[in-house]
């Protein structure tokens, strides 16, 4: 039960389990970003959820094509804002009014006016830290090991390759049916990725 829950959470971060027989999924290469977008839309509407796309540069509209929906990063960020605001208020009140009160030209030990700059700064700082940290967490990064790295072709994802990867952990995954779907969507090559160090190339 718990294991299933953890797997589900990891899947939302793009970290998928390999199948019992070691098959991690299918990696399809597409000739250009336009075809990749269309393929992502097709894969999503066919009911697949455990899939991801890889391209050398961001593609506008890809999030909608993949059906990713609204990012939850905003909620994480506002949590950081509240933390920063609270921490800054507490820090200034405790240091200047409780722990070491100093009379500075008759000003109150703690007042809201001079505290606002620090409250503002820490709010921004914690928002930024939570936003970056949350982004990494939601994306499952950093991720030094990924079975996709076994594919020789996949190195071109940072140069001129446009890839779509469907994970074997998806409940709809079927080796031949999924491969047929990807080829129908315009894939110029589909590879089966194994999680123990080798891949086989099926070129059309």
């Amino acid at each position: 039960m718990l294991k299933k829950l953890i797997q589900g959470v990891k899947a939302t971060m793009g970290i998928y389990e390999a199948r019992e027989d070691g098959i991690y999924g299918l990696l399809a290469e597409f000739p250009n970003p336009g075809v990749l977008i269309a393929a992502a839309r097709k894969v999503h509407t066919s009911g697949y959820r455990h899939f991801d796309t890889h391209s050398p540069f961001p593609i506008h509209g890809m999030d909608r094509a993949m059906g990713l929906g609204q990012s939850r990063i905003g909620y994480i960020t506002i949590l950081g804002s509240a933390t920063g605001l609270g921490l800054a208020t507490w820090l200034q009140w405790w240091t200047s009014a409780v722990d070491y009160p100093l009379n500075i030209s008759g000003k109150p030990f703690f007042a809201i006016e001079p505290s606002i700059p620090i409250m503002f700064e820490l709010t921004v700082l914690f928002s930024a830290l939570f936003a970056v940290g949350g982004m990494l967490a939601l994306n499952g990064l950093p991720r030094p090991y990924n079975p996709l790295f076994y594919s020789r072709e996949f190195t071109r994802a940072s140069d001129d390759g446009f890839f779509l990867h469907v994970a074997a952990s998806d409940s709809n995954f079927d080796l031949s049916a999924t491969e047929a779907l990807l080829k129908e969507a315009g894939a110029k090559a589909v590879e089966v990725i194994h999680d123990h160090g080798y891949s086989e190339l099926h070129t059309t």
């Binding site: 030209s105 006016e113 001079p114 606002i116």
Partner: peptide
């Protein structure tokens, strides 16, 4: 608005 207010608050 706050920048204007705070400096005058501090200076007094």
């Amino acid at each position: 608005a706050f920048s204007q207010y705070m400096l005058y608050w501090y200076g007094g």
